[in-house]
């Protein structure tokens, strides 16, 4: 049985989520160590994205508790959870398609700026120092993912690989302690997938904790410190990439018996 440790930045305890009569997550207990790259793998429909939605407040658990940095997250709304330092991306990229690439990342600076509706309405942006700062910081995060050249492009017009990079830049712009990436390599070609692996390594070097759901096993085995295997909403494997690869339960879940 797992136990909560001090180095766990995120701790899910006996989490259960039921939709109608369907059990999507069943008595799941997992811990994520601070500064690690942890991958969550499992067959389609295993409940991986549901776990992300539970952590980020888009769903609330039917029972169990979620603790982040010593704080219970249950019942907090998504924007509050973001303000505590948890960022995420979505399985089907969700950009603000009508806005420019730069503006998308500028929205990511929302929590790090303060102007309210009165102040924003009264003065033109060019007169406000905060706007210039937001713009500069957003440019820095675009540079981090290598999209500086596309800053003025409309986000919806980017190719999928760049859209995924942009979504990550936007999530990084909130300067999270923990970032959840939902299938960052889905739909990417092999060259883009390698670039994505390098980006995740770079994020880890920023001392952020990374949790990713991913189907690309090469990527998972390459970058993860730890791999969690979920099937039918239950944890069936937990360990280093090597250990998980040799686990008979995991092999059975993936290949069938």
């Amino acid at each position: 049985m797992l136990e909560k440790k001090a180095e766990h930045i995120l701790w899910l305890e006996n989490i259960r989520k039921v939709f109608g009569g369907v059990v999507a997550v069943d008595d799941l207990t997992i811990g994520v160590e601070k500064g690690s790259v942890t991958s969550v793998i499992g067959p389609n429909g295993a409940g991986k994205t549901t776990v992300f939605n539970l952590i980020t407040g888009f769903l609330s658990p039917s029972s169990g508790r979620i603790v982040y940095s010593g704080r219970a997250l249950n019942r907090l709304r998504p924007h509050r959870i973001a303000s505590l330092g948890i960022a995420r991306t979505f399985q089907n990229v969700r950009l603000f398609p009508q806005m420019t690439v730069l503006e998308n990342v500028m929205v990511g600076r929302h929590l790090r700026s303060a102007a309210g509706i009165f102040f924003s309405s009264a003065l033109p942006p060019a007169w406000r120092r905060e706007e210039a700062r937001i713009r500069q910081e957003a440019m820095d995060w675009l540079e981090f993912v290598g999209l500086t050249g596309h800053a003025r492009a409309i986000a919806g017009n980017l190719p999928l690989g760049s859209q995924r990079m942009l979504e990550i830049a936007r999530a990084l712009a909130i300067e999270p302690h923990l970032i959840l990436l939902d299938e960052p390599a889905a739909g990417l070609n092999s060259r883009e997938t390698i670039a994505m692996g390098e980006l995740i390594e770079k994020i880890r070097q920023q001392r952020m904790t990374v949790v990713l759901v991913e189907h690309d096993m090469e990527l998972v085995m390459d970058i993860s410190d730890r791999v969690l295997v979920i099937n039918f909403g239950r944890l069936i494997g937990d360990g280093t990439p090597e250990a998980v690869q040799d686990d008979p339960d995991v092999i059975a879940a993936y290949l069938g018996e």
């Binding site: 979505f90 398609p97 009508q98 999530a171 712009a173």
Partner: peptide, 14 residues
């Protein structure tokens, strides 16, 4: 404008 584009994404950014 962000919440018009995607409410979930906007909320996830705070």
């Amino acid at each position: 404008r962000a919440l018009h584009g995607s409410e979930d994404a906007a909320a996830s950014l705070g």
